[in-house]
Amino acid sequence: MFGRVKDAMADAAETLRRAFAGLTVVEVAPEPFSPRSHGSAVLGVEGRAGLEPLASVCRDMRLLREAVEGQALQPFQADLRDESGWARWGAEAEVIRMTPLEGGRATRVAVPPLPRKAQVQGRIEPPARPATRRWTEPLSPPGARRMDPGLGSVEAEAGLDTMLSMAVPILAEDIHQLPKGLWMRYSLQLVRGTGVNVRNLEVIGLFRIPRKGVADLRHDPGKSRIFVRLEASAVRAPRAPFILARRKDDGALVSCYVEDP
């Protein structure tokens, strides 16, 4: 066993000897130290408008975040909080490592002189005051007008002549509703008045029309009525039964007034 360990140690020693057998020492010339200088930036003056409005920034206050206007009159609630200063210092402390200053060549830099007076830009000219003018002439009051909205009176005109110029329809009476004796009387008068045999007559209708003043008469067979055109004298004239008949032999119309008993 010890023989094996001895062999192993020998092998390791030989291995190390071979590994470092070819190393050569190289001399490296030290790099000359070359300090670099940096110029300072030229100071500049930046003009800003002097009359810029103040801008207020609303910042959120964490302690009063929950406060609302409606609760403004509520008493403040003291809130006891435990805070360890040391713990906070330890948590928030930051170790700043200062880089060591390096020496270097100093370069003279011309520093421009500061302006003696700051230039104000964006100056707003004060607004000119409006000139006041005086208006002495008073407004005249408007004139009131009165207009009667009434529709007034209207005149009525007599227009009977106009109405009489229009044909008046008159319906035939139902002769079957008349008393038989009266109808016999009317028939006799019809025969006498027209001179036509009763067997040759076909009665169209019995109408009550003015005894005088009838200017025109037309028969409307479809509706068993006559159209009469009247004159002014017809208005006051008495109404009389009027029989309209047709001759059977030639179809001619015949008519006559008959007398009431």
């Binding site: 008046v168 009550r208 208005v235």
Partner: peptide
Amino acid sequence: LVTDTSGIPLDFRYTEPITPTRLQ
């Protein structure tokens, strides 16, 4: 129009045309 029972005119009256103004 006033008529008798036969429809014969006894009287007829009419009014003059009334034209309301725009305001009326």
